[in-house]
Computed example of a mutant assay.
Amino acid sequence: MTGVVVTLLYAPADRPELVTKALRSAADVVVLDLEDAVAPAHKAGARDTVREAVASADRSIQVRVNAPGTPWYEGDIELLASLRADLGVRLPKIEVPEQVADAARRLPARPLHLLVETALGVERAFDVARADPAVASLGLGEADLRSDLRCTSDEGLALARARVVLAARAAGLPSPAMSVYPHVRDLEGLRESCTAGRRLGFCGRAAIHPAQLDVIRSAFAPTPEEVAQAQQVVDRIGTATAAGVGALVLADGTFLDVAMVEQARFVLALASATAHE
């Protein structure tokens, strides 16, 4: 395990057959969805599916609950409080730190994964990311954000995406995963979008279909040249440290600093996480 999460796969919790398929997939994390993918009349049954799936599955799972303030939020929180403590909780439409603190208080020891999906949420992204030590990640919910911003293309999301990357890293959290790419059959568009997201500082992406997983993984994989450069940096610092050398220089004359070493280690971890078994 590298600790780097590259692929997350959503499964609507009111569809047991899709939940089973997702749990058998190669996704790093399966997200059982109680929110947008589940009609109001099916919420109770979806909770039963989550309870059964969590009890029988030995893998990394998160559950996306309904947003705070909705009629289903309390029932979702009660369900999660009764389940295993390592279960990740995906909190949608977060706008204020108090929402995070309330979930952390009622779900102790559970990692919280926050989604900001409104203009206000983006503006307060750093504050909510630091709201409680239980916060494990920060991300965007872009469908709702598009509606709130009234934007018609990805260009309108550029600032929000950059803000979330900055807020996550400033709060000491992992680089965020990208929001889902809704065009399931457009795998080339997905690849291009992931490549652009990696340049912005995202690491990985949520998927809504298993067919998207390999594309996401390969798009976020470092190139062989990046891996070779990173390995050279790590090897050079190890050799220099063992020899008691203070000035660290690569073969091309580039001086090393702490930031370069940390980035190199991340690249190697990402390469390991995206390698096909």
Rank of each mutant, 00 (worst) to 15 (best):
T7V: 05
D14A: 08
R15L: 03
P16L: 01
V19W: 01
K21F: 05
A22I: 03
L23E: 04
S25W: 06
S25A: 13
V29S: 03
L34T: 07
V38R: 02
A41P: 02
T49E: 04
T70D: 11
W72V: 01
R84E: 15
L87V: 10
G88Y: 01
V89I: 15
P97H: 08
E98L: 05
Q99P: 01
V100H: 00
A103L: 06
A103R: 00
R110N: 09
L120R: 12
V122K: 00
D127R: 13
R130Q: 13
A131K: 00
A136I: 09
G139N: 04
L140W: 00
E142A: 12
L149H: 07
R150I: 12
A158W: 09
L166I: 08
L166G: 03
A167Y: 01
A170R: 11
L173I: 04
P174N: 04
H183M: 14
R191C: 09
S193T: 09
R205K: 15
A206L: 13
I208S: 08
P210F: 06
L213I: 02
I216M: 10
I216G: 02
S218A: 15
A219N: 05
A219S: 15
D235Y: 10
T239G: 02
V245Y: 08
L256I: 09
A259R: 13
V261D: 04
A271D: 14
H276M: 14
